[in-house]
Design a protein around this nucleic acid. Structure first.
Length: 459
DNA sequence: AAACATTCCAACCGCGGAGTA
DNA sequence: CTACTCCGCGGTTGGAATGTT
């Protein structure tokens, strides 16, 4: 409710901090902790408001802040997390533990946003922009769009998984469910959304003319239908969307952990974000690669429901300790999407085979995405742009060090070399829905969100 | 070398949630 | 239930630094 009286009081200094002020603040906090920020300035002998002190501390003086240039891995993390979380800088910052939200925000606004825009990607929606799709530039934009279509594709994957989530929850079976990935194909005459990316899934359903061809059994078309119907009604307020929208609004603190399980083939059935209305969950994960395998759901009202907020978490990273602070809901989302996407080729209803596994665990054959520890700082400097586009598009030959045309690499012309452009751009991507590009893109996200902020080997 | 443009980022502003009396 | 404070967050700004003409 009430707003802080703020710092308009006379006598309080504003503007840049002097070294003396910094020293005072540091000394005080080191000795006493910050305590009440409001009371701090007087105690520390500073003529500043508490807010200003807090800001100075959290954004600059805090000892655990990493300053300086963002690494490629950090860039990737920001972009990918932004795609998932939108402008929730503090949430993003939790995954880049030594960076402040302010710094990330600044970096996004000054660097990454422009870069995405330049690439024809709407930095808000992380989808190819319409103008890029329709501009008459001799097909270049078309290629770009085609190559970027995976961005939209994973939005679709999210939608589908989301829809499944709700559907399953609505079934309210008291038995454990073993959910399976539907196969699907999706086309993307996607429009941009004005929503923040954190709401992309919802808004995408609201606004995007996405056509989804689904073969999931009994899949009512509720998602698309309801969303289109709700267009005039104020976005996501539609009751029919209550579950997915509210659930997947990335309420990080409230979201229950991902549901983990494993089938006999070590293959993923599905991963669905756990939501409060669903109830308790149980499961396990693979010891081998730390990948969530499947999901068990116990409905609310079953014998375990009293415990449905207290899932025991196993860290997916074998090297990490329990109870790390990575974001479950984000992880869930990522997994959900990954599996939905990867599992979308036609053979994936029941028996996923080795392909998924090999692709998921490393993405190491061919396509190359740096998401792990990478000491190659020099290359990082040189490949800043390229690395980014590689991450996004991950063209087939992106190990080629000569592929240094950012725009072109983005459009696969480096890899496709003209003729391959069209094919590489358009044909390889959406048709079967499980291209390497997508997998590696998601793999990278998974790694990012899997890594606990404190333990991350990346940063 | 000067003028101008652009980039960068620390800091500010205002809002809203949480907690509490 | 209301009113209030505190705090954190995201958006924005202003000026220094850097680049370009």
């Amino acid at each position: 409710m009430g707003r802080s009286p703020c710092c308009d009081k006379v006598g309080l200094k504003k503007g840049p901090w002097t070294p003396e002020e910094d020293q005072k603040l540091l000394a005080y906090i080191e000795e006493h902790g910050h305590g009440s920020w409001r009371a701090l300035p007087a105690k520390a002998g500073l003529e500043r408001c508490g807010k200003s002190c807090r800001l100075r501390w959290t954004n600059y003086l805090r000892p655990d802040i990493k300053r300086g240039k963002f690494s490629l891995q950090e860039e990737q993390a920001i972009i990918q997390l932004h795609a998932l979380l939108g402008n929730r800088w503090s949430a993003i910052a939790t995954h880049l533990p030594k960076r402040t939200d302010n710094e990330i925000k600044n970096y996004w606004n000054t660097h990454l946003k422009k870069r995405l825009t330049k690439m024809g990607i709407d930095p808000v929606t992380h989808k190819p922009r319409n103008d890029a799709l329709v501009s008459g530039d001799g097909g270049h934009s078309k290629k770009v769009a085609a190559n970027l279509s995976h961005m939209a594709q994973w939005e679709s994957a999210r939608l589908e998984a989301e829809a499944r989530l709700v559907r399953e929850s609505k079934l309210r079976s008291s038995q454990q469910h073993s959910l399976q990935i539907p196969s699907s194909t999706t086309t993307f005459p996607s429009s941009s959304s004005s929503s923040s990316s954190a709401q992309v899934m919802i808004k995408l359903a609201d606004e995007s003319p996405i056509t989804t061809t689904k073969d999931w059994t009994n899949n009512e078309d509720w998602l698309l239908r309801s969303n289109h119907e709700s267009n005039g009604g104020g976005g996501m307020g539609n009751a029919e969307l209550e579950s997915p929208t509210s659930t997947l609004s990335f309420s990080e603190n409230n979201a229950s952990p991902a549901i983990i399980g494993e089938n006999s083939n070590n293959n993923v059935n599905v991963v669905v974000p756990m939501i409060e209305f669903v109830g308790a969950t149980s499961g396990s994960y693979s010891e081998n690669d730390g990948i969530i395998r499947s999901i068990n759901v116990k409905e609310e009202g079953s014998e375990d429901h009293h415990d449905h907020h207290q899932h025991e978490w196993k860290d997916y990273d074998n090297n990490s300790s329990m109870g790390t602070t990575f974001n479950p809901s984000l992880h869930e989302l990522t997994m959900m999407t990954m599996e939905s996407t990867w599992g979308s080729s036609s053979h994936h209803h029941q028996n996923h085979d080795h392909d998924d596994e090999s692709l998921r665990t490393s993405g190491s054959n061919g396509a190359h995405v740096n998401v792990g520890d990478d000491d190659d700082d020099d290359a990082e400097e040189e490949d800043e742009e390229l690395g980014f586009t590689n991450l996004l598009l991950n063209t087939n030959n992106n190990n080629n060090p000569n592929n240094d045309n950012n725009e072109l690499s983005l459009s696969s012309e480096g890899g496709g070399g003209g003729g391959g452009g069209g094919g590489g751009g358009e044909s390889h991507n959406n048709d079967n829905g499980d291209s390497y590009e997508d997998k590696n893109y998601w793999n990278s996200i998974l790694h990012l969100v899997d890594s606990s902020p404190s333990d991350s080997p990346i940063f």
